[in-house]
Design a protein around this nucleic acid. Structure first.
Lengths: 244, 244
DNA sequence: CGCTCTCTTGATAGACTTCAATGTTAGTGG
DNA sequence: CCACTAACATTGAAGTCTATCAAGAGAGCG
């Protein structure tokens, strides 16, 4: 397998979490015309009000969708992982309504809109699968509204950890019950709508309660049952083929 | 124009807020095979974990997407207005991840999935327009994450009022700067993630500050400039053809 | 008229923020 | 190898926003 193929492999994994793919479809994915670029942590790939002419496929690294208020307060509205195409929507919605910024060092494949549209037209079943992805992305946003709107801080953080665990597992980026969490507590706070200080207290509590362990940026889930329970996590909204 | 045509007219209006339609497309919309039903306020049209076999087009009335936590706390994750098809996604995502409940008396058109798929296949430009709608729906959800996650209560309520005003205006359901707001303060609280008591205080404050007036369920916007300002409202996320 | 639902208001409690300081870790260059 | 720096994590104290509880007022309805 060439390096080129390995690049798109993560999209295959991602789609297979929600639909079945034929050999032909897999090879069509490998033939996606990617222009690969690297980004440092903390860079904006796309900005609000931009009018992109290409789409992004995350090959490695984490990206945040975020919005900023007038007073500088930042809200991360979703976290995008390898295999995600965070601005597929720009094919149909000309103007970006949020920013895409790297949370880590990233490897990203750019695909011109024209090429993407041709590819989607040539592969209707894959087009449907990609649409499914945008719908799931909307579903995740709705769950996040619930998360920041109705849960208390302790449950919010627990819920995000559950979501990331399930999504990372689907793309083979977990190891037993551990995964690398490259988010600062401040970024986590921006995702769940609490201050970094309070995120810290919540994480300390989750550790004290024996739900998780944290060491060098690696989170280990010690008691998945209770973590699901305290966060009222129900993975329906991720629309995966098999439940976690 | 027949009553049948008037039913679907609201969808025409809705789509024209974001795209242009030809005469042929308009008449295709009028020919959508609707099975019309009426609902009282407070009824569930679709429930979480359902597997719908038909889509909903709202002809009249307001519908809430909502989720419920274990402790009974309810979060409205979006408000759907006439012309919206809140579960178009069920064409691609088999299982519902949220509930759809009527906020008012409603008139709803049901369209079997099979018929909807055939109609979309027959009208690619309309299919694209409908996809746009689902993308916009996702965009609105992201804005709501920002709303409940980063704004304080006063701005949250102001923001929802701005959004409803713009969306209602697009379908011709405003009168000058007034619109009917059939939401109880308790429902509003469930939408913005605060208690009904606090919603009441915020609304009193908005009235005292001269931003809005409220009488018999009709909201009048007295100072749109300041309402936009205090809520940091930017209508980009609604992706309308012309800004408000 | 009484019933119910919603709005309104006050008092108290709790969750979370902000400010501020200290501890920890990893990286850098001498 | 150590001093120095920068970023991030941790902790405390005080203050603010919002929730909860409770009770009364108003409006619509059978």
């Amino acid at each position: 397998m060439s390096a080129f193929q390995r690049n798109a492999e993560v999209l295959v994994q991602r789609l297979q979490a929600t639909v079945e793919l034929t050999d032909d479809e897999r090879s069509a994915i490998y033939r996606l015309p990617l222009h690969v670029r690297h980004f440092e942590r903390g860079q904006d790939l796309v900005r609000e009000h931009d009018r992109p002419s290409q789409c992004i496929l995350i090959l490695d690294g984490w990206i945040a969708r975020y919005k900023v208020l007038g007073d500088g307060k930042r809200q991360i509205v979703s976290i995008e992982l390898p295999g995600d195409m965070p601005d597929l929507q720009s094919l149909y919605l000309e103007v970006m309504d949020h920013n895409l910024g790297s949370l880590t060092k990233c490897v990203v494949g750019f695909i011109p809109h024209v090429a993407m549209k041709a590819w989607l037209a040539a592969h209707p079943r894959l087009a449907a699968a990609m649409w499914r992805e945008t719908l799931i992305s909307g579903s995740i946003s709705r769950e996040w509204v619930l998360n920041v709107g109705a849960r208390e801080a302790y449950a919010r953080v627990a819920h995000v950890l559950c979501e990331l665990y399930v999504r990372l597992k689907a793309i083979g980026r977990t190891e037993n019950d551990s995964f690398v969490l490259p988010l600062s507590q401040s970024a986590l706070g921006e995702a769940v709508g609490v201050s970094s200080v309070h995120v810290n207290r919540v994480i300390m509590a989750l550790r004290k309660d024996g739900l998780i362990a944290v060491a060098q940026g690696v989170v280990t889930i010690l008691d998945i049952t209770r973590l699901i329970e305290v966060s009222s996590f129900d993975d329906t909204y991720l629309h995966m083929r098999q439940a976690a």
